[in-house]
Amino acid sequence: MNPAYSVILFTTASGAGFGLLAWLAFSILTVPPASSAAYYVVAFGVAFAMAIGGLLSSLLHLGHPERAWRAFSQWRTSWLSREGMFAVVCLASSALLALAAIFDLHPILQRALALPVLISALGTVWCTGMIYESLTTIRAWNHWLTTEIYLVLAIASGALLMTALLALFGWFSEGAAWTTLGLLGLGAALKLFYWRGIDCAPKLSTAGSATGLGNLGQVRVLEAPHTQANFVMREMGYQVARKHALKLRRIALLLAFVVPVLAMLAALLLASGGAAFAAVLGVLSMTAGLVVERWLFFAEAQHVVTLFYGAERA
């Protein structure tokens, strides 16, 4: 699948943004951390910038961005429509929560606003994952862990962001750091399990089953229907070379998980000033790592339509 940069930016940035919103809501619901108006301005500002920036970049992916409002209508069947609805509910309720937190309104009001933010932030990311997982045409995405990985990576990158923000304000939280460590470990484990799964899963469709000519023998392309690559080949035909994919997987693992884990451990050891530096380093590394991971998620995925264009199995 063609790794469109708009979609990579959307799923990584918005994922982290909604993850951070979920953690801000969770912290307000449970034990509000040491906080100030300035902290909430910055924290909600960062979360909004990432979530909205990602959503805007996904709008660039559309042929008719001005009609995007129509995407809220088909929530009965379409995960993309559900994602859009959850995202709007989340951003609207987060705006209210941000105001309530910044102006330190009554704790009960803050908690009442935090609950819908938590649910809708997680719901948005869940729907993002389901958009991909529900496509039976792409074996690598139709894997049962696809959605769980989207959710865990969003929550983990949100937790890392929040740990860094708390440390920058001088309130480094060991609890947040340990939670981030646990989520990073879980994310890496799921991703490794997922990669193993898609490498071992049988490719059930063949050029023979796609054309129905398999009983006559091997089906080979004699002539392409067109001289230049068409939309189908440009959009669905992209595939990264296997050896590059393995190298990129190692880079993604290193940047998205190993370096942030080391950064969290360093933050726990250093505390105070050094912790903020380590955590910010972790955020930068994880951002780069998730971009590589998401690029691979697209580039490694093979669409069954490639069977009509020369692939033997998919």
């Binding site: 699948m1 992916h61 559309l62 042929g63 008719h64 961005p65 009609r67 995007a68 129509r70 995407a71 993309l80 958009i131 496509l135 039976t136 045409t137 792409i138 469709s205 796609a210 939309f231 189908v232 959009e235 669905m236 669409h303 069954v304 339509v305 009509f308």
Partner: peptide
């Protein structure tokens, strides 16, 4: 149609 192309991803027949 907003041109999101998701339908093209869902179709096995291109």
């Amino acid at each position: 149609c907003i041109g999101c192309k998701l339908c093209s991803w869902a179709c096995p027949y291109g």
